[in-house]
Design a protein around this nucleic acid. Structure first.
Lengths: 203, 203, 203, 203
DNA sequence: TATGAATGAGTCTTCATTCAT
DNA sequence: AATGAATGAAGACTCATTCAT
């Protein structure tokens, strides 16, 4: 039949669509995609179930649009942070900033993080989104380094490894609670390692 | 609910329960927890749907028991590999062996890997299982190193970082296909990094 | 329910109502009453969904008004054909003309025909409409015959039977495709039969 | 996923499936396919909604299976009537018998008749079923005539026309109530016509 | 023990109709 | 008069779990 998805033009309608995405994505992140239903989303967004299907093809659509809209906030808020570019007076600063950012970030959207991470492993589109942004992030960091005088000697690969190290560290710090792991030491080791990684490129 | 779960005593009954765990876990890994139903599991195991509820509280139980029984095969097959302990004539060998193992392993149970990884991020019990085994693995490697003369200088933390590096590398190699990433280089960088990590401890 | 149906007075409003009837009836005929929705109709008519309910009580109303306005075009276009009256130089001509008309007619609005036929069998009002017009048609033919000198010897019944014969023939010719049926023969037989029917009345 | 339609093996299950078909088809015939829902059917059959989907792919399936099982009873009960073959002592008898049968038949399952007739015009599979059985009926009558000494001189076509005449007559008698139509006369005319149709073939 | 038929609450989605603007 | 956003009841269908045998 006729395509019934409407792109809202009016301000109120746009706000409503936004609200559905925001609240829907939020619920999905908090409770899990399979644990919430369209009625929950409608209720959370303060709309009727029907309206959802005028703005979205299906429940899955809400997830995807939510991801596009809020995914960066959860996974790569640095991508949006203009200041990021500026204050790399020394390398340690950058690393420290990144670690702190990652941790802060994980802590803020702890659950969301995990639920979406979950879908990265089970849903093609979510995975695609994530890996694309991960690459953006990698390139973004690389650019910062280059513009700070780093030699581009396999920089992409190095940055990618660095991000992995940081991500693992943060994940460990926040979730694992492997009791006998000394996170202060671990952080120091990771920083040393990153520095070693770039030792020949740094200006 | 009255607890009617029976622990099978007879050989045939035990085999039946095993079969449910094996086939059920297999299906869950291949298709995803939410994409298979108890009938599918029953059919695959060659039993009736009813019998499932004499051995398990619910569908979720099958996942958990499957994880306990087969989780190591998927995530940490090295833990069961006796030979692992023996042939570390030099450090490079160990690292190489681990990388190859990880990759082989990922490739063999690619889908299972991803589906369970997904649940690690959304299910507390699965996560708990995973992190516990990850620690076992860490300790196991640590023991190997110690018994090969490594100094225990924050060894736990170092091994953990190493495992993270390897895991990230392998994941990248197998899934990401970030086109412009040079994986040969990346592998070299990772190995160098690991060596740097242990540079003061190696005998 | 408060009766808020407005009979449009202004030219533009009248045109709008007409358009809803025309396009709505068209869609219903083409796709089936249950397969189109009011949004489809509104879109096809170039109006808003809301306005429909100012001119019609409900979706069903559109069908009925469409039927009244366009039903004859689909089922009994001869009723509107002025020339019909004139050129019956001989009886064979009339029969042939009718058969050809029926077939042409079926072919033109093939789908509409079937969809409305369907409703004749399931909807009282549609049935009523159809049978009334069928009677009009019968009487109209009867008048033509009488004005051409036929004796009125159970003419109504005979014309009715004739129309049934023609309708069946045409339906068979167009739809059935009963492979081993010889339609040329069938047509001849039907014509013979009709002639036999009127053998004592013809002038 | 795995195909879940079950063909019931146990007596009780078979009976249940039968009951769903019978009551479901009945409801569809009485109320119209679009006016009943699966819950109605389940309730009428004394089962749960879930069980329906173990025996049928969907609601539509019930219609089709009902048609296959009970369609003949509604449209062509003569096809099942063994006595039909025997007592054609004269032609008038056959015709009379057929007319009476048609009428009785229409009267018994009046509504069913109409609802299914409706679907013949809007659903391909229903149409296909009907036309196939109509042909069976035609051939069956033809065989009876041949075995009673009729010459096969375009017999198929003639029988088809005859059936059309009878069907129209009966339909008129039962539904139309065209007040000023004399059905006694009409019946006589139809019989005469049929006889004329076969005048050269009768023994 | 075991079967597999049966349950029915719960899911996503549609759409005639209403309502705020 | 007109718009089109919004409603929410209703529909088809699924599936973890229970139950009669």
């Amino acid at each position: 039949m006729i395509d019934t998805i409407r792109e809202p033009k009016q301000k109120r309608a746009i706000e409503k669509k936004e609200r559905i995405i925001k609240e829907g994505f939020d619920l999905i992140c908090k409770e899990g995609y399979y644990n919430i239903n369209t009625q929950d989303i409608a209720k959370a967004a303060g709309v009727s179930t029907g309206i959802i299907y005028q703005y979205f093809n299906d429940k899955y659509d809400i997830l995807i649009e939510g991801l596009e809209k809020y995914g960066d906030d959860i996974f790569f808020p640095m991508l949006k942070d203009k200041d990021y570019k500026l204050d790399i007076d020394n390398f340690d600063n950058l690393i420290n900033k990144m670690i702190n950012n990652y941790i802060k970030n994980h802590k803020i959207s702890n659950v969301a993080h995990e639920e979406i991470m979950s879908m990265i492993h089970s849903d093609k589109n979510v995975a695609e989104f994530y890996y694309k942004r991960e690459l953006d992030m990698t390139n973004s960091i690389k650019d910062i380094l280059v513009s700070n005088g780093f030699k581009d000697n396999n920089l992409t690969e190095k940055v990618h490894i660095m991000l992995g190290l940081i991500d693992n560290l943060c994940h460990e710090v926040i979730y694992h609670k492997h009791d006998h792991m000394d996170y202060k030491i671990m952080e120091k080791l990771v920083i040393d390692n990153i520095k070693n990684l770039f030792k020949d490129d740094i200006k």
